[in-house]
Amino acid sequence: MTKTVSKPNINQLYANLNGLEQMQMAFQHKGNRPSIGETLDFDLVSVEKGVAVFEGNPSEKHMNPIGSIHGGYAATLLDSALGCSIHTMLEAGESYTTVDLNVKYIRAMKPGMGKVTCRGEVVHKGRKIATAEARLVGEDGKIYAHGNTTCVIL
C-alpha cells in the first residue's frame, strides 16, 4: 500500500510564529510568491518590524484603454505594502483583515517607465485596530500614488 504524504497547511507551519517571523520566512522562500505578484510583476524586497517594501515593473500588460498603467496596479501594490507592514506587527495567533483602503493617485504611470517602489509603514497597531500608510515612487523619485489603510486585528 502506498503511503500518502500531505503537504503541511501553511497555517500549521506559521501558527507559532509572530507576523514578522512569518513574513521573513515567506521572504526567504521565493517559491512562496503569491500569484498576484506573478500576475502584476511585483515582489516583496524587504521586510522589518512595521515596514514592508515591494518593487514592481509596470508594463504594457498592465495598461488601461487610455494608454497608462491601470490604477488597480498602484492600488494593489499599495494594498500589499500596507497589509504586509501590519502583518509584521502581529503576535503569534493573531490575524487581520482590511477594513478600508484609501488611494490617492498623483500622476499617471506609463509602460516602460522603469521600476516602482512601494514602502508601507505602520502608523498604529492596537489590540483591535491597525493603520498604515504607503507611497509608490518611481525611479525618477516622483510619487505616483500614496495611500493608507485601516485593518481589524482578529
Rank of each mutant, 00 (worst) to 15 (best):
T4L: 10
V5F: 08
L13F: 07
N18W: 04
G19S: 10
L20P: 00
E21W: 10
Q24T: 05
Q28P: 06
Q28N: 09
P34W: 03
I36V: 15
E38H: 11
F42W: 14
L44W: 00
V45L: 07
E48I: 05
E48K: 06
A52S: 15
S59I: 11
M63S: 06
P65E: 03
P65M: 03
I69N: 06
H70T: 05
Y73M: 11
A74M: 09
L78D: 04
L78C: 04
L78W: 10
D79T: 10
D79R: 03
D79M: 10
S80N: 14
S85I: 00
T88K: 00
M89E: 13
M89F: 05
E91L: 09
G93M: 06
G93Q: 06
S95F: 09
Y96K: 07
T97F: 15
D100R: 02
L101I: 12
L101S: 01
Y105T: 03
I106W: 02
A108S: 14
P111C: 01
T117C: 07
T117D: 07
V123S: 05
K125C: 10
K128Q: 14
I129P: 06
I129F: 11
A132Y: 04
E133P: 01
G138N: 05
D140R: 11
D140Q: 04
Y144D: 01
T149P: 02
T149K: 04
V152W: 11
V152I: 15
I153C: 03
I153D: 01
L154E: 07
